[in-house]
Simulated assay, not measured.
Amino acid sequence: MSTGPRRSPRRSVHRLAVVATALMSAVPLTLTAATAAPERAAACTGYVGLTFDDGPSTSTQSLLTALRQNGLRATMFNQGQYAAANPALVRAQVTAGMWVANHSYTHPHLTQLSQAQIDSEISRTQAAIASAGGGTPKLFRPPYGETNATVKAVAARHGLTEIIWNVDSQDWNGASTDAIVQAAARLTNGQVILMHDWSANARAALPRIAQGLSARGLCAGAISPQTGRAVAPG
């Protein structure tokens, strides 16, 4: 008496072969997923600080897109007046994984100002960035890289570490995309490069900057408030 449809021996063998093949193919996939993360971490033998001054601006969204597409993070030294006028862009910087820092309120020559004026430039920017959702900055870059003992002292009173740069991309001076890529190639572990939020050439250089850093085992990192050097993101 038959109790159900008969299964042909040939069909049973075929089904077992399919199951065995599927199990065997799953093993390397599992190993690959398990080892991928450590391999990526091991690729970073050092860190550099990519920095962009003078934002946020009409170029900020395009810059953030380019950074994310190339797996890069950067420190955005924002002017307070622009942070106050464009709070959504400050939040976009944070959402994109960038670090937001202080670049004065109106970008003056701070060394030519009184202590009270310097304090106003720095404190108003701290407030503008915080109000926009950028957190309380820990890093400060004086406009033009101009500083003195008074500027440093005022910044320190606001809990800020002054950050200049090791490599100047010269994007502000009309440097070509090729020249900016070459400038980034000079970066070594812990160093910081100056670029600008509004520079189309700096933005266009990002894919090649990312490739060049990767080839040298360097990754884009955070800037330590303790040392002023680029370090692994916390």
Score class of each variant (00 low, 15 high):
residue 198 W to D: 10
residue 202 A to W: 00
residue 197 D to P: 15
residue 220 A to I: 01
residue 205 A to N: 04
residue 206 L to A: 04
residue 196 H to T: 03
residue 210 A to R: 06
residue 187 L to S: 04
residue 194 L to P: 04
residue 198 W to A: 09
residue 168 D to W: 03
residue 168 D to K: 00
residue 180 I to D: 04
residue 220 A to G: 02
residue 162 E to S: 14
residue 208 R to M: 12
residue 166 N to K: 12
residue 193 I to M: 15
residue 185 A to Y: 05
residue 206 L to M: 07
residue 201 N to Q: 08
residue 206 L to D: 04
residue 193 I to N: 11
residue 191 Q to T: 11
residue 180 I to A: 01
residue 185 A to D: 00
residue 170 Q to T: 11
residue 211 Q to A: 09
residue 200 A to L: 02
residue 187 L to W: 06
residue 174 G to K: 00
residue 185 A to I: 02
residue 208 R to K: 11
residue 219 C to N: 08
residue 167 V to M: 01
residue 218 L to A: 08
residue 166 N to Y: 02
residue 199 S to P: 08
residue 163 I to A: 10
residue 198 W to E: 07
residue 180 I to Y: 03
residue 184 A to K: 03
residue 218 L to T: 07
residue 188 T to C: 14
residue 173 N to A: 15
residue 188 T to G: 08
residue 181 V to Q: 03
residue 183 A to H: 03
residue 214 S to D: 13
residue 169 S to R: 08
residue 204 A to L: 10
residue 201 N to I: 00
residue 164 I to C: 13
residue 213 L to C: 09
residue 203 R to H: 03
residue 218 L to D: 09
residue 201 N to S: 11
residue 201 N to P: 03
residue 194 L to G: 07
residue 178 D to K: 13
residue 210 A to H: 10
residue 179 A to Y: 08
residue 179 A to R: 12
residue 195 M to W: 13
residue 211 Q to N: 08
residue 189 N to Y: 00
residue 212 G to L: 02
residue 216 R to Q: 09
residue 173 N to M: 06
residue 219 C to E: 07
residue 200 A to C: 02
residue 178 D to E: 14
residue 199 S to K: 00
residue 201 N to L: 01
residue 203 R to I: 15
residue 190 G to T: 07
residue 197 D to L: 06
residue 170 Q to D: 11
residue 214 S to H: 15
residue 171 D to S: 07
residue 182 Q to T: 13
residue 202 A to K: 00
residue 202 A to F: 07
residue 190 G to S: 14
residue 185 A to W: 00
residue 200 A to P: 10
residue 192 V to C: 10
residue 177 T to Q: 07
residue 166 N to F: 12
residue 210 A to L: 15
residue 199 S to H: 03
residue 187 L to R: 02
residue 192 V to M: 05
residue 180 I to V: 03
residue 170 Q to V: 13
residue 181 V to F: 02
residue 194 L to H: 02
residue 183 A to D: 11
residue 161 T to Q: 09
residue 195 M to D: 05
residue 214 S to N: 14
residue 194 L to S: 06
residue 209 I to V: 14
residue 192 V to G: 12
residue 163 I to M: 09
residue 214 S to Y: 15
residue 171 D to A: 09
residue 168 D to N: 12
residue 168 D to T: 05
residue 199 S to L: 14
residue 218 L to P: 04
residue 201 N to A: 10
residue 197 D to K: 06
residue 174 G to V: 09
residue 198 W to R: 12
residue 185 A to V: 09
residue 217 G to Q: 03
residue 206 L to G: 03
residue 172 W to N: 13
residue 186 R to V: 08
residue 180 I to F: 05
residue 176 S to D: 03
residue 213 L to N: 01
residue 214 S to L: 03
residue 208 R to N: 15
residue 211 Q to R: 06
